[in-house]
Amino acid sequence: MTSIQKKRKAFVEASYCVACGCCVKVCPLGAIQIIDGITAQVSMEKCVGCGKCAKECPASVIEIREAEA
């Protein structure tokens, strides 16, 4: 029987992101970038789900939740 391991990752609600860059500045692994000056995008390969970006986001549009690995 194969078990699916779940890991915590950051997810951005792109339609509400104001692209301020606060999350980019606090991410210790450089897993977030601002795309076209419009929204933040998280690299699922780099993100470890530490939550620093979610705490820093002034628009509260970043959520840490489980993602299938």
Results as ranks from 00 to 15, higher is better:
C20A: 01
K55F: 03
K9N: 04
G51Q: 04
A14E: 15
S60R: 10
G30F: 03
G30T: 05
E63K: 12
Q5R: 15
V42E: 07
Q5W: 12
I64H: 02
F11G: 01
I4M: 10
Q41W: 15
C20Y: 03
A19I: 09
E68L: 12
P58D: 02
T2W: 11
E68S: 13
G37H: 00
V48E: 12
C27L: 05
A67R: 12
R65K: 15
A31P: 04
P28M: 09
C27E: 01
S60G: 10
C27I: 05
A19Y: 04
I34W: 06
V24H: 05
A40G: 14
E63V: 13
E66Y: 13
K25H: 06
I34F: 07
G37R: 01
F11D: 09
E13P: 00
I32V: 08
K6R: 11
E13T: 02
S15A: 05
C23G: 05
G49M: 01
T39H: 12
Q33Y: 03
C50G: 05
C17M: 10
P58E: 08
I38V: 12
K52F: 14
V18R: 06
A31H: 07
D36T: 04
C17Y: 02
I35H: 00
K9L: 09
C27R: 00
G30E: 06
G51D: 03
C17K: 03
I32T: 04
T2I: 13
T2C: 10
L29K: 04
V26E: 00
K46M: 08
